[in-house]
């Protein structure tokens, strides 16, 4: 409980540092730190599968993609803010409204909360007999909700095709320029 609170506080500090930092390289490195802290929090919250994905995809692939984009864009310093007061006011009002809304949510780790009583006992009691997989996350992901995972794969494929289509045009346009 205490370690979760400490890690969450660290995450909040890193997020604020990302907001005020102007050097883009530092922002990307802070983003990597943020993702690893997130992965550690997820381990503390018993979400080991998600933590592994966050550490490899969130901290690994995202950071590589951002560094690649910085290389292609020649990104150095972001411009200083002109008028940050309106966005700050919007953010604070939304934060206040959301924090007020959380007071109606069940307390942390309340076993009687609806999230723990509705459909999960059925999965936890029947998953091993029905699928033969002891890891319930895998059982739900690949067996009960297999079509969702197929949809996710479609989304990733579409994004990959989009990235290739966008970046191929650069190569094609540069070639005639070099010849002239």
């Amino acid at each position: 409980m205490l370690i979760i609170a400490v890690l969450l506080t660290l995450m909040a500090a890193v997020a604020v540092a990302v907001a005020v930092q102007r050097n883009l390289f530092s922002v990307v490195v802070l983003g990597g730190i943020y993702s690893f802290l997130m992965a550690t929090v997820l381990v503390a919250l018993d979400a080991v599968d998600v933590a592994m994905t966050e550490a490899s995809v969130g901290a690994g692939i995202s950071t590589v993609l951002l560094l690649g984009a910085l290389y292609l864009c020649g990104g150095g310093e972001a411009k200083p803010l002109a008028r940050p007061w309106l966005p700050l006011a919007v953010a604070l009002v939304i934060a206040g409204a959301l924090a007020y809304g959380t007071l109606g949510l069940p307390a942390f780790s309340d076993p009687q909360a609806p999230i723990h009583t509705h459909v999960v006992p059925r999965y936890l009691s029947a998953a091993l007999a029905e699928t033969g997989v002891p890891n319930v996350v895998t059982a739900v992901l690949a067996s009960y909700r297999g079509y969702d995972t197929l949809g996710e794969t479609t989304v990733v494929f579409t994004a990959g095709v989009g990235v290739i289509a966008l970046l191929r045009r650069i190569g094609r346009r540069k070639k005639p320029g070099r010849g002239q």
Binding site: A5, T9, A12, A19, A91, A95, L98, F108
Partner: peptide
């Protein structure tokens, strides 16, 4: 506390 940090990260 976890909800409040979530809200803070969201608005950040």
């Amino acid at each position: 506390y976890s909800y409040w940090i979530t809200v803070l990260l969201m608005v950040a």
